[in-house]
């Protein structure tokens, strides 16, 4: 027989874990491919990688490059680390402007298809 307080703790812990996961999924799902009041969106080519500064430059199809800062909270898809970014890769970036710098919320590296 498991004591009641342990059961309760386990249930609370599981709820927390599941809740956090769901919130994370929701945050990713809510990002549409457009800029909103809170989040800016850009799609383009990686034009430069600054490993020492944890930044990448992204050149949109029409316009100048935008420098994006990656931090530990940035969600990365298609790459595991900033080291995996390379010039000419197609990326989708959602970011917010914080104290003058563009802080990446989520970056997706697009698949390179030959078609």
């Amino acid at each position: 027989m498991i004591p009641r307080n342990i059961t309760l703790t386990l249930i609370l812990l599981m709820s927390f874990v599941l809740g956090s996961g769901a919130a994370l999924v929701r945050a990713g799902e809510n990002l549409e491919e457009m800029s909103t009041e809170d989040t800016l969106y850009v799609r383009g080519l990686v034009s430069r990688v600054y490993l020492d500064k944890m930044q990448i430059s992204v050149r949109p199809p029409k316009g100048d490059s935008i420098r994006i800062t990656i931090d530990p909270d940035t969600i990365l898809e298609g790459v595991s680390l900033i080291d995996d970014f390379q010039k000419e890769q197609q990326v989708k970036v959602w970011y917010s402007v914080d104290k003058g710098s563009n802080l990446a919320i989520k970056i997706i590296k697009m698949m390179e298809l030959g078609c």
Binding site: L45, R59, C115
Partner: peptide
């Protein structure tokens, strides 16, 4: 044209790196 070559036959200086 197909694949990555497609970027180079667009108008002006769009879709490519500097």
């Amino acid at each position: 044209f197909r694949g990555g070559a497609s970027r180079f036959i667009t108008k002006d200086d769009h879709y490519v790196l500097e």
